[in-house]
C-alpha cells in the first residue's frame, strides 16, 4: 500500500514538471518579459528604462535557462526558469502585480472558496444520486422519459443564465437574499451562501443525474440483479440494497477526482456573487493580466488534480474489495 502511494506520488512529479514547462513556455517564451512590461506599464509610460526597471523589480531581467555571466551553480539558479518556475515546487509563489504575497492570499481565500464548494458538492451529490435512483425506479415509464428530457434541457442552459436569472429573481425581485457579498461570521454567512450554492447545485443537476442514471441502469442489467429478483426480493429492495451500493463505486471514484480541486473554488459563482475566494482571485488576475498569479494558480490547480487522481486510485481499493493495489 505504502509503496504504491509512493510510486504514484513519484509519478506525479514528472507531470508537474511538464505542467511547469508548459506554463513557462506560455508565459516567458511566447511572450517575452518585455511584452509583459509594456502591457503592465501602459502605452504612455513605455520607455526602455521603465521596461528595464519593471523587469529588474520583478526579477525578469535574467536569462531564460542559462546565465553565462555567473559562475558555478549560479549559472542555473540565476535564471528566470529557476527563480520563477522551479520555486513553485517549494510552495513559493512570489508576489502579485500589486505587491502582495500570493501564498498568503491563497491561504486567506481558501476559506470562502470552501464555504461555497463543500455545501455545493455535498448537496449536489446527494440530490443527483437520489434523483437518478428515482428515475431508475420508474425506468421505462413516462416519468423516466420526461426526467431524462428535463436533464438534457437543464444541460443545454448555460450556467450564466442560472446565475443571472437566480440573482434577478431571488435577490432583486423578491429581495429574499443579498445580491452578492460575503461575511466570514458563520451565523451571517449562510445568508450570502444560500443563493450561490442553490444556483451551483441546480446548474449541475442535469448532466450528473443523467450520467448516474446510466450507471445504475448498467448495474441493473447484470446477473446478480436477476438472481436477487429471482429469489423473490422486491424491486425497491434490489435497487437500494444491491444496485445502489454497486452503482456507487463508479460514482464515488468519479467524484473523488473533484474533491481536491474544490479548493480552487468556482470561477463564475464566486465572481458573480462577490465571494472573496480563489475563483474570483483567478478571474481578477486574468482580467488584470497578472501573470504571476495565473502561473501560481495553474500550478496549484494541476497539483490538486494529480492529488485527486491518486485519491481516486486509493478509493477504488476502499470501496471495491476485488481491486488490490500492486
Amino acid at each position: 500500500m505504502f509503496a504504491y502511494i509512493l510510486r504514484r506520488v513519484l509519478y506525479a512529479i514528472p507531470i508537474l514538471i511538464g505542467v511547469n514547462l508548459i506554463t513557462f513556455a506560455l508565459f516567458f517564451m511566447v511572450n517575452s518579459p518585455d511584452d509583459m512590461a509594456r502591457m503592465q506599464l501602459g502605452v504612455k509610460r513605455v520607455t526602455p528604462e521603465a521596461i528595464q526597471q519593471w523587469k529588474a523589480e520583478r526579477g525578469y531581467d535574467k536569462p531564460l535557462f542559462l546565465n553565462e555571466t555567473s559562475a558555478g551553480v549560479a549559472q542555473i539558479t540565476d535564471t528566470i526558469f529557476y527563480s520563477k518556475s522551479l520555486t513553485l515546487f517549494a510552495g513559493e509563489f512570489g508576489r502579485s502585480e500589486d505587491g502582495r504575497e500570493i501564498g498568503r492570499e491563497i491561504r486567506e481565500r481558501m476559506g470562502p472558496s470552501l464555504a461555497i464548494a463543500i455545501p455545493t458538492f455535498l448537496v449536489g451529490l446527494g440530490l443527483t444520486v437520489s434523483l437518478s435512483l428515482f428515475l431508475v425506479l420508474f425506468r421505462g415509464t413516462w416519468l423516466d422519459r420526461t426526467g431524462v428530457v428535463l436533464c438534457v434541457g437543464l444541460m443545454s442552459i448555460s450556467s450564466l443564465f442560472f446565475i443571472i436569472g437566480g440573482q434577478f429573481i431571488f435577490a432583486r425581485m423578491l429581495q429574499l437574499v443579498p445580491i452578492s457579498g460575503y461575511e466570514s461570521n458563520p451565523l451571517v454567512a449562510w445568508h450570502f451562501l444560500i443563493l450561490p450554492v442553490t444556483v451551483a447545485v441546480v446548474a449541475g443537476i442535469g448532466s450528473s443525474t443523467r450520467w448516474y442514471r446510466t450507471l445504475f441502469l448498467e448495474e441493473i442489467g447484470k446477473d446478480y440483479v436477476r438472481t436477487a429478483r429471482a429469489k423473490g426480493l422486491s424491486d425497491t429492495a434490489v435497487l437500494f440494497r444491491h444496485v445502489l451500493r454497486n452503482g456507487l463505486i463508479p460514482i464515488l471514484t468519479g467524484v473523488v477526482v473533484v474533491i481536491p480541486t474544490l479548493f480552487m473554488g468556482s470561477l463564475l459563482i464566486e465572481s458573480f456573487f462577490g465571494i472573496p475566494g480563489l475563483g474570483s482571485y483567478t478571474i481578477d488576475a486574468i482580467a488584470a493580466q497578472d501573470f504571476a498569479v495565473v502561473r501560481a494558480m495553474v500550478f496549484l490547480g494541476s497539483g490538486l488534480y494529480l492529488l485527486g487522481l491518486i485519491l481516486t486510485d486509493l478509493s477504488y481499493t476502499l470501496v471495491d474489495p476485488r481491486i488490490r493495489l500492486k
Binding site: I15, L16, V19, I22, T23, L26, F27, T261, M264, L267, T282, I286, F291, V294, M297, V298, G301, S302, Y305, L306
Partner: peptide, 10 residues
C-alpha cells in the same frame, strides 16, 4: 492536469 480555463486564459 492544467486547469482548462487557466490554460486558455494564458
Amino acid at each position: 492536469a492544467v486547469p482548462g480555463v487557466l490554460l486558455i486564459a494564458a
